[in-house]
Every structure is written in structure tokens, then in C-alpha cells.
Design a protein around this nucleic acid. Sequence first.
DNA 1: AAACTGACTGTTA
DNA 2: GTAACAGCCAGTT
Length: 107
Amino acid sequence: MDENRDTFPKRVIQVVAAIPEGKVATYGTIARLASAPRAARQVGGVLYRLPKGTKLPWHRVVNRLGKISLTESDYTGQKRRLLAEGIVFGKDDCIDLQQYGWQGESF
DNA sequence: AAACTGACTGTTA
DNA sequence: GTAACAGCCAGTT
């Protein structure tokens, strides 16, 4: 069967699923780990159309500023999940990537 | 098949 | 220091 080909969404899902709890990754990092270092935007595109009952910790994905890129509604929901994992938000609702930023398993 | 969209990022004004 | 523009690549219509 041929449905196991490495599609971008699948790779993104794998990478996001590998983010350790209590850590966050940026779109750029995920894109890089997904063999598409310039496709940070598409990472968001994939997450945007994630199935409803996904197990994916998509809430651990933030932009390079360490902030949630979502609009107000989803923003609150994601922030709440992150707080539940012990992630601390700074003054400007920004996460300290130096501390929580996940760079991947290799390099 | 072509055109538009977008949960980003880096550079320039 | 903040604001705006362009580049980027894959999904959706």
C-alpha cells in the first residue's frame, strides 16, 4: 500500500507529537525538523486543519517570539493548556524560549 | 490546472 | 523601538 508516503502534514504531526510535555516549539523549528525549513507557514496550515479529535499537542506550538499566533478565542484555550503543563507566560504573554524552547532531539 | 489563502519568518523603512 | 513588505511552500477551492 502506498498511503505511507511522507507527506508534509504527516511529518509535521510526527514532529509536533514528539514535543516533550512542558516544552514548546516554534513553527520554524517544526518546519526544520519536518525537512521543510522554509515551510513554517504550512506548519500552521496543517495544524489549522487538524481533525477535531486529534491527540496532537498542537498547543505546544508557538511563533518565534514565544507567543501564541492564534486569534483571541483560540489564544485563550491554548494558553490555558500550556499553563496546565507548567509553562510560564511572561509579562507580555510571551514564553521564554530560552527555557521552554524545544530544539528537537538531534542538533 | 490555476489562483488564493495562510496558526510564519526575516528583512527593511 | 515598532511597523510594514516580501518571500516562502503546501493545502484548499
